[in-house]
Design a protein around this nucleic acid. Structure first.
Lengths: 341, 341
DNA sequence: TATAAACACGAAAACGTTTTAGTAATATAA
DNA sequence: TTATATTACTAAAACGTTTTCGTGTTTATA
């Protein structure tokens, strides 16, 4: 790559000082019309642009925000990134994305890459492994120094910072209620292992709705899936029993779609024999048949608000209270819970 | 945010020079064991990390690569990002992602944000609007200065730089041949407007396969979809005619899934009455019923190779020839093209 | 005892920019 | 004519780091 043109080189070209060039390019009245004109023409011709590293160093501000997410090939997370990027851009920030791949180690290494002054703040959804092992010490230094930090979706109570979450309890409650309303009696829950906070929160909403409607809780209808094992096999067990459930609430889109497949494979009619709802209203839910009723998580909105929280934190000088925002999911009712009549 | 600790502050603390601190932290033998020890302990306690902006400025290297893509909530692009990120990370680079949202203007503004010294190179898939209007002047300055640049998927012939594309002709050819082999006679093509290069290339492969098999080309079976209008309506017209096709090749997953829905809505059995293949083997194709046979584009691989090309370009001093790599897609055969027998 | 080597550290430049404070030279006002 | 503005610039610091080249002191060698 050809070396970029700098103020110094322009200055040398015209035998003036660097400050003269800097001022000329900023149309300062301190510089004569003549000098200004030739400097600007020259700079323009050579496509001069101020080196942003130098500016960032001088201004002690990068206008970049870092995002660490577990994975990107995932509808929810990509919508969140989308929302972050949109808002950040409006405010003049760029976004640097790092993936933890659900690994604690990778998350820690992302931390060290991003907290060396290259970003003004961080938006994070913590890795599964981090949640599982509950080791949060990599956050300590950041929190101690009041580093601008926003946790979203998969948050950690112990860490004092701005947070934004989805009302998972409410979403699951709404979904379960909907199933109860359309007449379901035996509602299965397909959820994650307990250490995934969103999984356990959704379970909580599910239980709450059952209790509320006076339906007895049947632990045998609650299935905890291990993402490292075969999903089809595990979820198949929900359906392939003597007395399958008449409704299923799955904590994500994939589980729901697989449950749907399994039901159809067994000859059950969805929604008549078994109604199904999944969390996350992504592309899958739109294209299964029947389409899946789902809990819309508004990832875009979440991203926007996360970015807003972060940028406010970055740009405010007064030490505000930490905020915890909650996004209410809503139920997108599609064919998988609409009885045929 | 609390100000970060710097060499200067440490130096002042111990009444030594900045260089002494720098050397001590690097375990230089020039510094006495005693001084080294206390400096390191102090730095450690205050969690000193070298400011990366300062390093980047000094080393004239950012170890960041910029990526500009049309959208991120899109399976193919998110797999590409994934691939880029994986490889970049292995090589010690970070990734900054910008979205053009298919807009020329946004693409140009992304250019100006990223080419001010904040990244060592750029990986780009051009916006639809840019392709449509064929205005490429924002690339000129980069190309002139030999700025490390890799174009992927949606590339531009006129621009001299490294490129990586999918063999779209070959993929469509393979897919069409597969349809012919399973007995299709009237194969419809659901494609994009002509200015989308990948769309027209896939059409080329489709035509080539027909010609090769001695099947007459029927222009009335070629549908060019406008993404700004209602997709269901436009694609519905493929199926809802007196004499619907007995096979469909769609240039993306969404078109294919919608065609599948339309076929089923009309009471046609897939694949018996109409076989369907889509490009992009994402989540949708896996969860429709029947599952969609699709042309796998290997986005991860593409991302990895794009990153590899770019990093080679960045790190090589000798001016190498520009490379054009081609990834061969393969056909993932699923139920939508398997006859019932 | 004179000289060389080893030790422990510091000064300063370089990366590229902005900005404050200053300085000549010229022009204006008293 | 003298004091004061105005004009058109420059010097230098600051952001934080690394690294080369000194330099003074101590220790070892001849």
């Amino acid at each position: 790559m050809k070396p970029r043109i700098t103020l110094k080189k322009i200055a040398k070209e015209f035998g003036v000082s660097i400050s003269t060039v800097s001022k000329a390019l900023k149309d300062s009245h301190e510089i004569s019309e003549e000098t200004r004109g030739k400097i600007k023409a020259f700079a323009d011709y050579y496509n001069y642009k101020p080196n942003s590293l130098a500016l960032q160093l001088r201004n002690q501000k990068t206008s970049v925000i870092g995002v660490i997410i577990p994975e990107i090939v995932h509808h929810f997370f990509s919508t969140v990134i989308n929302g972050i990027e949109q808002y950040a851009n409006e405010k003049g920030y760029s976004v640097i994305v790092c993936l933890s791949n659900e690994s604690y180690e990778k998350e820690v290494s992302n931390f060290s890459v991003l907290t060396n002054g290259s970003v003004d703040g961080l938006i994070i959804s913590v890795a599964r492994e981090t949640q599982e092992n509950q080791i949060y010490k990599h956050f300590d230094a950041l929190v101690k120094d009041d580093f601008p930090l926003v946790l979203f979706d998969r948050t950690i109570d112990e860490i004092m910072c701005d947070k934004i979450i989805i009302d998972d309890i409410g979403g699951a409650y709404k979904a379960t209620n909907h199933l109860i309303e359309i007449g379901a009696k035996r509602i299965a829950l397909i959820t994650t292992q307990d250490y995934i906070t969103v999984g356990s929160l959704r379970k909580e909403g599910y239980l709450k709705a059952l209790v509320n409607s006076g339906i007895a809780i049947d632990e045998s209808l609650i299935y905890k899936i291990d993402d490292n094992k075969d999903l089809y096999e595990q979820i198949g067990k929900v359906i392939n029993v003597k007395n399958p459930p008449d409704a299923i609430l799955a904590v994500n889109e994939i589980y729901a779609a697989i449950a749907l497949k399994a039901s159809k494979a067994k000859g059950l009619i969805v929604p008549n024999d078994v109604a199904i709802i999944g969390f996350t209203s992504g592309l899958i839910s739109e294209f299964t048949s029947p389409r899946l009723t789902s809990v819309e998580q508004h990832g875009d909105l979440m991203g926007r608000q996360a970015a807003e929280l972060l940028i406010n934190r970055i740009e405010s000088t007064a030490p505000n209270e930490f905020q915890k925002e909650v996004i209410s999911p809503n139920l997108k009712i599609r064919k998988s819970t609409l009885s045929a009549n």
